[in-house]
Every structure is written in C-alpha cells, then in structure tokens.
C-alpha cells in the first residue's frame, strides 16, 4: 500500500475502496409513480369510461 494512501486513511478513514465504489456505482432502483387524473372541477362524472382501452379494475394497495 502506498504511504500517502496510508496517511489519508489514518486521518480520515477514506479508503481506496470508498473512492472506487463512488466511481463504479450500481444503478439506482427505478422509482415509478404515474400521474393520476382528477375529474374536471365542477363537473359531475357518472359513467362514460373508456371502452376497448385501459382496464377498469385497479389493484389494492400493497
């Protein structure tokens, strides 16, 4: 191990592995949240959902 690296480690605890980990990061997990639609304000919405298009049932949370 190089002497200046040793000094760095002793003083800060920063190691080559920390630096190399920062320079070779794994990909972050994807975060998904799609925009929702709120019915138009002051407009009564009864039926009239899409046909032959996105399915109507929505899954339960969790």
């Amino acid at each position: 191990m190089r002497s200046d690296e040793t000094v760095t480690q002793e003083l800060t605890g920063i190691q080559s592995t920390d630096i190399e980990a920062a320079l070779d990061p794994v990909e972050a997990d994807g975060v998904y949240r799609d925009s929702r639609q709120c019915a138009a304000l002051a407009l009564f919405t009864g039926a009239g959902k899409l046909l032959l298009s996105p399915p109507t049932p929505r899954p339960k949370k969790g």
């Binding site: 760095t8 003083l11 800060t12 920063i14 920390d18 630096i19 320079l23």
Partner: peptide, 15 residues
Amino acid sequence: GEAGDLALAAVRVLG
C-alpha cells in the same frame, strides 16, 4: 490535514 485529505479524495471522485 484531515479536511484536505477528504477534499483530495473528493477531487478524485469528481474526476
């Protein structure tokens, strides 16, 4: 010093 070492490592990471 200590802060300088950290800064040096940061320079290396920012490349």
